[in-house]
């Protein structure tokens, strides 16, 4: 097996605030293979977005990457300087944000915001950059693309704006796209269009994608691999089929049970009881134990480590679901 495109090992990103250190990402490891879509799943506040921003080196104070490595095509990005990172952002790794209403600059035309990427990352002349932008807008399904270049973001609908954002992300042909909840802010009917568009574009270009979402249904539709985060830690990861069909961690099970999707749902729609604990004050032992139906005294004392469950599936649980309780 060739080396993965992205190999994250023991990533720790912490925020040092007045009321204590927030360990938003605490020892996260995962890999994304070439041409693969990896779903990064968890509840809001679980540190998913922070992982995304850490990859791009966009963690602003009071946040800081405290440890771990991010190997992108063999290069450790945690050791890369700002100048190097600027050449990676947009060109090697691009990002799609959650809310298309706010991720475009309201005062610049769409064309200018696209052109900016090409100016930064290619040697094309103005005419070639324009042609490239038009072509890209067309490929994400925006008609009359040449005219639309001189339009401002507010002249587009939400779904159209997200297409523009995706077009911008794809412009410099990056090898990895980090999509942070790319469809959460959109209408349900548009969500699947956008997802399909993203998958097609990724596959056609042979790029890889990290799809950050709280919605397992989205992941089920898109991802090859899944990494489940809880309180800044990986609780389960593995091939999408395996994890969705045979989750080992009770948290993953809970997430699957709360999907309102007949194909995946068991008998009834469940919610995970309780709330995500205060991330500044995490309990000793397993972070999930207060919400877990299988928790025992052991869970309160010892933090479970990720263990190989076979066929590429790993879970961090003392009492995984396929074992005897």
């Amino acid at each position: 097996m060739t080396e993965a495109l992205l190999q994250v090992e023991g990533l720790r990103t912490h925020f040092h605030t007045f009321s204590g250190t927030v360990r938003a990402v605490d020892g996260v490891s995962f890999a994304v293979g070439r041409g693969e879509i990896m779903g990064l799943v968890g509840e809001s506040g679980g540190g998913k977005s922070v992982v995304g921003f850490s990859l791009l080196g966009l963690i602003d104070p009071p946040g800081r990457i405290e440890g771990g490595t991010i190997r992108f095509d063999g290069e450790d990005l945690t050791a890369a300087g700002e100048a190097r990172m600027r050449r990676i952002r947009g060109r090697e790794i691009a990002m799609v944000f959650q809310d298309p209403m706010t991720s475009l600059n309201p005062l610049h035309t769409v064309g200018r915001q696209m052109d900016e990427v090409l100016r930064l990352h290619t040697d094309l002349d103005a005419a070639a950059r324009r042609a490239r932008s038009v072509e890209m807008l067309e490929s994400v399904g925006i008609s009359r693309a040449a005219e639309r270049l001189s339009a401002y973001p507010h002249q587009f609908s939400g779904g159209m704006r997200q297409r523009v954002v995706i077009a911008i992300a794809l412009l410099a042909s990056p090898r990895l796209i980090v999509a942070d909840e790319p469809t959460t802010a959109l209408d349900v009917t548009i969500q699947s269009q956008i997802l399909k568009l993203m998958r097609r574009q990724i596959r056609e270009r042979g790029a890889s994608m990290i799809l950050i979402t709280h919605d397992l249904a989205v992941v089920a539709e898109m991802a090859d691999h899944i990494t489940v985060l809880y309180c800044g830690k990986v609780v389960e990861r593995g091939p999408a089929d395996t994890v969705l069909r045979r989750p080992a961690h009770p948290y993953t099970r809970g997430l699957i049970d709360s999907i309102p999707n007949p194909a995946l749902r068991k008998e009834r729609l469940n919610q995970i009881p309780g709330m995500v604990p205060d991330i500044r004050n995490l309990p000793v032992g397993c972070n999930f134990r207060d919400r877990c139906p299988r928790a025992t005294a052991l869970c309160a004392e010892v933090e479970p480590a990720l263990q190989d469950r076979g066929s590429g599936q790993w879970a961090a649980c003392h009492h995984p679901l396929d074992a005897a309780p």
């Binding site: 921003f53 791009l56 966009l58 700002e82 600027r86 050449r87 990676i88 952002r89 947009g90 060109r91 691009a94 990002m95 944000f97 809310d99 706010t102 991720s103 475009l104 600059n105 309201p106 005062l107 610049h108 900016e116 990427v117 930064l120 990352h121 954002v165 911008i168 410099a172």
Partner: peptide, 26 residues
């Protein structure tokens, strides 16, 4: 605090470039 500032940085624009190119006019 706006998202488009971070998005511009994710495109590879420098911190200064983002501040003056995208932030200032807003």
């Amino acid at each position: 605090r706006q998202d488009y500032m971070k998005f511009a940085r994710a495109k590879g624009v420098s911190r200064r470039g983002v501040l003056y190119g995208h932030g200032l006019r807003n």
